[in-house]
Simulated scan of single mutants.
Amino acid sequence: MQILVDADACPVKDIIMSQARDNDLTVLLVSSISHFSTKELPEGVERIWVDKGSDLADFEIMKLAYPNDIVVTQDYGLASMLLPKRCRILHHSGYEYTEQSIQRLVDSRHLSAQLRRQTRSSRVKSEDPFKHEPQTPFDELLERVIQEQLKKLKEIE
Rank of each mutant, 00 (worst) to 15 (best):
M1Q: 09
Q2I: 06
V5M: 00
D6A: 04
D6E: 09
V12R: 00
K13G: 10
I15V: 12
I15N: 04
I16W: 01
I16M: 03
M17H: 00
M17F: 06
M17N: 02
M17E: 09
R21W: 05
R21P: 07
R21D: 11
L25W: 06
T26Y: 09
V27P: 06
L28F: 11
L29F: 09
L29G: 08
V30Y: 12
V30L: 10
S32M: 05
S34K: 14
S34I: 09
S34H: 12
S34M: 09
H35N: 15
F36T: 14
F36C: 12
S37H: 10
T38K: 15
T38N: 15
K39F: 00
K39Q: 15
E40K: 15
E40V: 06
E40P: 12
P42Y: 09
E43H: 13
E43F: 11
E46M: 14
E46Y: 14
E46L: 15
R47H: 03
R47P: 07
D51Y: 11
K52E: 03
K52R: 13
L56N: 07
L56G: 01
L56F: 09
A57H: 07
A57S: 10
I61Q: 03
I61N: 02
M62N: 08
M62H: 05
M62P: 03
K63Q: 11
P67Q: 01
D69K: 07
D69R: 06
V72S: 00
T73A: 04
T73D: 08
G77M: 02
G77N: 06
G77Q: 02
G77D: 03
G77R: 04
L78H: 06
L78K: 02
P84A: 07
K85W: 04
R88Y: 09
I89C: 06
H92W: 13
H92F: 12
H92C: 11
S93P: 02
Y95G: 00
Y95S: 01
Y97V: 02
E99W: 11
S101A: 08
Q103K: 11
Q103Y: 10
R104C: 12
R104I: 08
R104W: 13
R104P: 02
R104F: 13
L105Y: 07
V106D: 04
D107L: 13
D107E: 13
R109T: 07
H110D: 11
S112G: 10
A113F: 13
Q114G: 07
Q114Y: 12
Q114N: 13
R116A: 06
R116P: 02
R117S: 11
Q118S: 13
T119H: 14
S121T: 11
S121C: 05
S122M: 05
R123P: 08
V124G: 01
K125A: 07
S126L: 01
D128K: 04
D128T: 02
D128P: 09
F130T: 03
K131W: 08
K131V: 10
H132I: 00
E133N: 01
E133W: 00
P134D: 13
P134G: 10
T136K: 03
P137W: 00
L141S: 06
L141Y: 01
L142Y: 05
L142S: 04
L142N: 05
E143A: 14
R144K: 15
V145C: 10
I146N: 14
E148Q: 15
Q149S: 13
K151M: 10
L153R: 14
L153E: 12
L153Y: 06
E155A: 13
E157P: 14
E157K: 15
E157C: 14
